[in-house]
Design a binder for these strands. Structure first.
Lengths: 214, 214, 214, 214
DNA sequence: GATGAATGAGAATTCATTCAT
DNA sequence: TATGAATGAATTCTCATTCAT
């Protein structure tokens, strides 16, 4: 075992190659997992889908769970990257919050299937990998916490400090909710409408004098 | 095939027996699914856990997925039953809402593992069964819709009709959120505190003049 | 897991059946192991050879190594049984020694392949199983020790007590030697001649006044 | 394919290099085979252990079995070389026998693991290679035969000619016995004591008037 | 109705060997 | 010569389901 990108050991040394092949694996597995779920997808299917022989694929991972981890990690990285993008150059906490929430809901609409995947399959990861994924989720949530704190500091948001963490999680969940309740909500609200309403709800909570206080 | 309780055919005619055995199966499978997940639980384990022989168990179900369905259905039925209990004898919509939300959060705390199970394993159900489970979820959500409508009608709640469905789903999800974010929230808020804060948030949304309007 | 005959757990309860099926497995594996060695024999071949489906075979064992253990154990049990037979009704230590040695060499001739199997494949057993096999080997060797001690006590054999264990092992090995040196010895000595000469050597060592002394 | 040292073809021409690399391979494989056995050692492990890339290693061998052969051959060559050393400058057959036996037992003590390796893994060699190894074994045995014959001729040993071959094999086996019965003997006799006793036994057989006769 | 032995398709993973660079 | 990425046949073991008793 030589390489060890992202905590997943690889038999192949060449870093470039590892990255490239893993990208193939991630994108191949991606679709399959979304379509059939992790358990009903076989390693051979993944290999075929990503254009590698089964043997070659196993040069870049150790177990099928590794693939799941790579996929989940990729989704999270993508979400985080794009969320951070939205936060570049903000001037006030409130502006940041609005941009972040807006982007978050957009991402949940775009990456609906992938987020759902994380919800449903994370539990299949080995303990350590699961921990890392949950930590990543917390890091993303922390982006909202930061922006909320900033708004409190610069006076553009009214929120008790003790509510910040909960509010951040609420933002995360009310966004993700679209991915796992689309079957029910989709018939009644468009994504745009859904976003507008939920955003209003969330913002009103962060701008009221007494919001979330004890 | 003779019996057909709850859409799951059974080889056994005696209704009483079917119900009793299925109850055994549900409770045995329950714990196993929570502990190990659906896929990692074997039918043999289920049979052993519920004190039936594998052959006998298969007299009362047709496939392993049937067991999952029975379990999910049982959880839902339990949730619905206890939520309805809380709504008995209410006088106003607002009172109903408060009681229902309170009970909902209590249930999410008590049945945390089971709700999580539904979130994670529903996708493993065959199409038809999945539909039925989602429908049940919608029925439960509808309890909140009803109470919200009642409150609007009797003037105890201020909410735009177009927001009712969304609000009902929000209540559901902010309650369930405890089950799948406990790993992050548990360290910062007790279930009581969590309930109080989220309830406040939800109620404030249903009592403001302009809440959720277009 | 229910049955646990001989330390190898079985999924099948019926003891009779377990014994019968395992006998099938032993005899099927036997020939294959002798012909091709343990590693080059596949589990499917074993199953086919013993007339069971692969699934059924695995109801009676847990791993391929279990089969090896069962085979080795069976060979040893057979060897011990037949060696004990030869010792029934002996009157003196010397008589016992002569009968035992004679029988031992006969057995090595008859069961040549099986003894060789134990020599070559024991190392493939998991630690615990290996220990049990070596212990059995020591028990068999102890049969010779006993008879030597008896001869010393009744005066029919002359041997220092400190030499008994070594002599017993020598008897074992000079017998087994036929199984793993037949390729060289076979061309020059018949089994009968081999037996006669080695027996003479061994007996002379146990009947000389000064034999093996310090 | 160009080189063909020791019957194992190599893609590399340079003899020096072939010898050097093969020496690396032998010593790397050596330890691994002893520790884990031939089958459980992978070619990758061998390559890593001997500091060659897998590709390079395969320039000097053709199959994994070749490595086993090289190792076995090396052990045998070493054994033979050191046994011949002990025989240099002997004056009588008896002196030769005593020196050879002494050296043989010393070697069995020192190279215990390697001898055991030959015992256990030779069967995994392809037919031809196995033959060559057995032939080598016979050649080493022949060293004892020669010395025995010499002793008969010069009158220092008393032994029937028909017993010479058997006696030579007995010497070999009673020495090797230490390698495969150490688990049982080691607790009761030190190597020195073992050697002394077995040597006494063997010598007594070669110096008695009637030893091994018909 | 109850039992549990039988089944075999299917799954993940390994590893000796090759060959383009 | 040296390298190491690629290959895929082969292997062990599992497990949902059936069916004779």
């Amino acid at each position: 075992m030589t390489g060890d990108e992202k905590g997943i050991p690889s038999l192949v040394k060449n870093r470039r190659l590892v990255e490239q092949r893993r990208s193939q694996i991630i994108h191949g597995a991606f679709n399959l997992f979304v379509r059939k779920g992790f358990h009903k997808t076989t390693t051979r299917e993944i290999a075929r889908e990503c254009g590698l022989s089964i043997g070659t694929m196993y040069e870049y991972i150790q177990t099928k769970e590794d693939v799941l981890y790579l996929v989940c990690d990729y989704i999270h990285a993508e979400l985080e990257r794009r969320l951070r993008e939205a936060l570049e150059g903000i001037r006030t906490g409130k502006e940041g919050l609005m941009r972040a929430v807006s982007q978050h809901f957009r991402l949940m609409g775009e990456m609906s299937d992938y987020v759902l995947l994380i919800y449903q399959e994370t539990k299949s990861l080995p303990r350590e990998a699961k921990k890392r994924i949950l930590q990543k989720e917390e890091e993303i949530t922390a982006l909202f916490e930061e922006v909320l704190h900033r708004g409190i500091r610069d006076g553009t948001l009214k929120l008790d400090a003790s509510s910040v963490k909960l509010m951040a999680h609420n933002i995360m969940v009310l966004g993700q909710m679209w991915t796992f309740r689309r079957w029910a909500l989709g018939g009644h609200y468009s994504l745009e409408e859904y976003t507008r309403r939920q955003t209003a709800l969330l913002l009103s909570e962060c701008t009221q004098e007494d919001a979330g206080g004890e």
